[in-house]
């Protein structure tokens, strides 16, 4: 009985998910001053099969100080500036820069959301939100990636700034290593390598530089969508024995350059 119930819940979950549409943002991480391309697959939504789809965007959802996009127009008559570009059946794109679209300064913009609709508002998708803007001011943190935006053919360097660690075990951690996991564009694991010895750049800074194809073997036709890294090491327990300790797993989505 439990299994049947689980199956029914899963089936309803799958049906619900398929009716939500699929959003991809390029680049995956962006500031309010970057040009962002929304790609929306409306398959399974009330807009499936439509030729004309309009975006209805809004800023700062749930955090106050929000504004409607300058391109929205009226709900019953969307502005032509809000029209998304049809690139294939059920696939639509829309390009924008947030400071221009919302008429707000980078300091005012925290996140944005949007939905897609027919011009007269009789059909619409669910809300897609919130998508956070990266800060325009550099914030130092215990883990860092260089360069900030890269694709899977690029050299990546992951850093652990031990002096910025907030966890006591991470502050005390020695014998520092890093584990890497790679995923394809569908999010499926492609390969991983555990406990790679890091470079000790100073007493408080550890790093590891790599190009994925030099770390794991994957088919030439496979494109990687993201990777994750985790710094690990050892701390001494009450008896002076080494105990393994792990930092959090940090995920990095690869940028698709064009």
């Amino acid at each position: 009985m439990k299994k049947i119930l689980l199956l029914i819940i899963c089936s309803f979950g799958a049906i619900w998910a398929s009716g939500q549409g699929k959003v991809t943002l390029s680049p995956a991480a962006f500031t309010s001053e970057d040009e962002v391309t929304i790609t929306l697959d409306v398959t399974g939504t009330p807009l499936a099969g439509a030729n004309d789809v309009y975006v209805w965007a809004f800023s700062n959802d749930g955090v106050g100080g929000g504004k409607d996009a300058s391109t929205n127009g009226q709900w019953a008559a969307s502005s032509e500036d809000a029209k998304m570009t049809k690139t294939a059946t059920n696939i639509f794109t829309f390009k924008f820069t947030a400071t221009t679209l919302f008429g707000q300064s980078p300091a005012e913009l925290i996140n944005f959301g949007f939905l897609a609709k027919s011009k007269d508002g009789s059909k619409q998708t669910p809300d897609y939100k919130p998508f956070k803007f990266d800060p325009l001011v550099f914030t130092a943190s215990q883990f860092r990636l260089f360069p900030a935006k890269l694709d899977y053919t690029d050299m990546a360097t992951v850093y652990f700034h031990q002096n910025l660690a907030t966890d006591v075990n991470l502050q005390r951690m020695t014998n520092i290593k890093v584990s890497l996991s790679f995923y394809n564009e569908a999010g499926d694991p492609v390969g991983s390598k555990q406990n790679i010895v890091t470079v000790k750049e100073s007493a408080i800074l550890f790093s590891y530089s790599f190009i994925p194809e030099r770390v794991i073997t994957f088919p030439a036709a496979t494109k990687l969508g993201k990777f994750s890294y985790q710094f690990t090491g050892t701390v001494k327990d009450a008896n002076g024995l080494d105990v393994t300790t792990n930092g959090p797993v940090t995920e990095v989505v690869y940028t698709v350059f064009n």
Binding site: R144, F146, I211
Partner: peptide
């Protein structure tokens, strides 16, 4: 040399890295 042009534009630190010795 790898140059993070986005970081340069934003005036962030860590703008470039000499990667000659990595491989």
């Amino acid at each position: 040399t790898q140059i993070d042009q986005d970081a340069s534009t934003k005036g962030f630190p860590y703008k470039q890295l000499d990667i000659t010795a990595v491989y």
